[in-house]
Write a protein that binds this DNA or RNA. Sequence first.
DNA 1: CACCTTTCTTAACTTAAGTGAACGAGATGT
DNA 2: ACATCTCGTTCACTTAAGTTAAGAAAGGTG
Lengths: 192, 192
Amino acid sequence: MNNLLFDFISKYISLTEEEKNAIISLDLFRTVKKGTILLREGQKSKESYFVLQGCIRTYYIIDSEEKTTAFYTEMEALTPPCVTTQTPSEYFVSCMEDSILLVSNSDMEAEVNSKFPKFDIMCRMLSEELLAKERIDFDEFKTSSPEQRYLNLLQKRPDLIQRVPQHQLASYLGIQPASLSRLRARIMEKKS
Amino acid sequence: MNNLLFDFISKYISLTEEEKNAIISLDLFRTVKKGTILLREGQKSKESYFVLQGCIRTYYIIDSEEKTTAFYTEMEALTPPCVTTQTPSEYFVSCMEDSILLVSNSDMEAEVNSKFPKFDIMCRMLSEELLAKERIDFDEFKTSSPEQRYLNLLQKRPDLIQRVPQHQLASYLGIQPASLSRLRARIMEKKS
DNA sequence: CACCTTTCTTAACTTAAGTGAACGAGATGT
DNA sequence: ACATCTCGTTCACTTAAGTTAAGAAAGGTG
């Protein structure tokens, strides 16, 4: 488990044994049962999540309907906007599968970062990278139709389509469940 | 001009005179004429832009059609993904109005950051903040219809609707120019 | 195993966006 | 001043998504 994490970190910075031990001593790992709600609308939170195994999702409740906007799977990190802005959360975060997460607290991060400035640099690199990714995803979303978005997802994250319920995928693609179902049928037809 | 910049920076960190002078001596300000293309598809670049006055936009050319995905106006910053990923750019950046920009180079940034670690911290804070904003924007986009997106824009960035051509706004909203025109007419009708 | 709930699909109908073309207004250039 | 080009709007038509409802399939629970 530790190795997964250190391999990830090594893409950004190299750690001394001392630093590794400092991380381990923080005791960040947490196993979380499927269905657990990690964050609720209206809550304040300082927690960030890094998925080592499993899947978490973010969703809004709008007109008493769940609107799923993102899934985070292995080696992906989520810092909810409410942690950054220090305001009550606009959305929910829930656990889609029994998962192993690394949960960090922003106060604790600040402390570690001041002790090891290296971590600040890693955080900067990571959030710059995530921002670049997010922008590209958003751009792709804007410039393509629902059908193209589904086909794109099929290419880039085929696992998601298997492990996640269709109606959640639908709102992730910005459409209604019935539309996704129809769209899939349309694609099947074309193939044959 | 310098004051605009230092006021912005002061939201994140406080600078000594020495640090302010270091920034000034970098000579980052550039006035750019409307229509100037700052970055082209396929180019590699290390430049980030911070808009002090004016407006820049990012757009793709897909099937020989321009697809505008973002506008950056006063006090907004753009680091194109290609700078972060060090790959050729997927898109163009052009200047919508005669503008005053702050243009920085990532090599130069690295140098300054190693001299003044404070800047690293600011960069981290800034990109975390931008990431949070981008996620919220993306979520809003996913969970709303073209008409809602237009009304939302009318609320949040009414200036954009005035200063930017409709057909570029259309693709920014993820629709065709004719659809935007129709949608606007529909809204006008409802109001009366 | 029977029951209930959730999920997915299908269908019929409504509504809105995509498309292609035409038009007029305004800007641009020679 | 005239021709040209760009831009926004409008129209008619096509295509796809939204909506509502019904039913089948899958999953979980007592």
